[in-house]
Amino acid sequence: MKQTPVLEGAFVSDPEPALVGSRCRTCETVAFPASFTCPNPRCAQKDVVATPISRTGRLASWTTVHFPPPPPFVAPDPFEPITVVEVEFASEGIQVVGPLAGASAEGLRMGMAMETVVEPYYSDDSGEVIGWKFRPAEGDADG
């Protein structure tokens, strides 16, 4: 089946699944999704390069969404609640939201190690749309 990324260049699957952002060559500011420029207003150079983001981070917050979001979200029928998690990547100094891989928020706790995976979001006539998700990781997070 044809696979289309939900956002071109925002993640990789090989060699390991990871988010990809941009990093400023001058001030080291990391942005996700990648920007064409540096968002630091006090940085004069604005020269950025694509950078992989640590594969693991820490759970900063989460919420379970009990009513289906509107399109372009593609909701299965019947709708099953989805959990949105916020993961902190300390080395990059950013926090990112994404869906929890797997249905249940049971067992989530603040600060636990989370890892990035790449999974299907939904499929339609043109194939499968894939994107980043997060799931509890074995072992310790980076940073």
């Binding site: 071109e8 919420t63 969404v65 509107p70 949105v84």
Partner: peptide, 28 residues
Amino acid sequence: RPPVDMVRWQVGVPNPAYWALEMRKRME
């Protein structure tokens, strides 16, 4: 590139989810 407002809906983050994420931090 699609605008981030399209992507966030595909991810599935309605407005109250943003507020709920902050509220859980507050509870903690």
